[in-house]
Amino acid sequence: MATEHQAGGDGTYYVPAQSKWPIVASIGLFLTMVGAGLMMNNMSAGGQSATGHYVFFAGALVMAYMLFGWFGDVVRESRAGLYSPQMDRSFRWGMGWFIFSEVMFFAAFFGALFFVRYYAVPWLGGEGEKGSSNMLWPGFEAAWPLMTNPDSETFPGPEKLVDPWTLPLINTILLVTSSFTCTKAHHALVADNRKSTQTWLAITLVLGAVFLVVQGYEYYHAYNDLGLTLNSGIYGSTFFMLTGFHGAHVTLGAIMLLVMFIRINKGHFTSKNHFGFEAAAWYWHFVDVVWIGLFLFVYVL
């Protein structure tokens, strides 16, 4: 791709030439979102239309094409030496504040959890300053975890809950360990020890994958043995939304690390210059920290 400002070496900032990726990404995002909307509306209306699936799938394909192409361009530019240390700092600010925005996304769901737990549910049970809400369902008694919902017909409560000291504890150990192995991989990369980097990164990836398998089994267990579902009232809602979005982020982080693994195998990165790896590692530590919060506030306490 032609560049207007060949830069980097002479101290000027790299401004890329025209790029098709933003418009491709916009179209991909649009198709994905419209497709998802069509699918959901069709599902809730009990329809049989498959249009939504096709649109969503087309959007996902466009998004995948865009991700390969766009990140491919960035990798090529980086390896061609077009980026200055100043460019590197732009990427660092960018990734850092992107992770902060993700933190705030989780904060919304944690906030919802704390609000229902400490205010909404006790008020429904007749406690506290807004205890008059109890008049809505006079027999309702507040408890957390909430096993019996005010309206048990629409929202049948869970029969049992996931025991924090079984699967979730295993997952905690897996994810915390993977944070350490990820750091080991980083240290090895800085020491220019490729073999060791590959090993530790592979271990990290395996730990992440096992985490996802365990979580998948936990969901299966919850739906089939415990009667804990999205429809089990506010406990199920907060449980599945928090752990589900976390699982999605683990998946994303694992994909990032996998790409880094492939790039390291291809001989990319130097001991000094490897922000792509660092960004993926930052992200991995972020999903680890979120999990600690989940383990404490969703499972244990």
Binding site: A108, A120, L124, N149, F240, M241
Partner: peptide, 26 residues
């Protein structure tokens, strides 16, 4: 904002009870 519209989406299509007092939400 993304979080709150996501909760709406889940309440509308997936049976959650974030904003429904019948399920313990509010």
């Amino acid at each position: 904002l993304a979080g709150v519209v996501t909760m709406m989406l889940m309440d509308i299509h997936f049976g959650t009870a974030f904003f429904n007092a019948g399920g313990g939400g509010d």
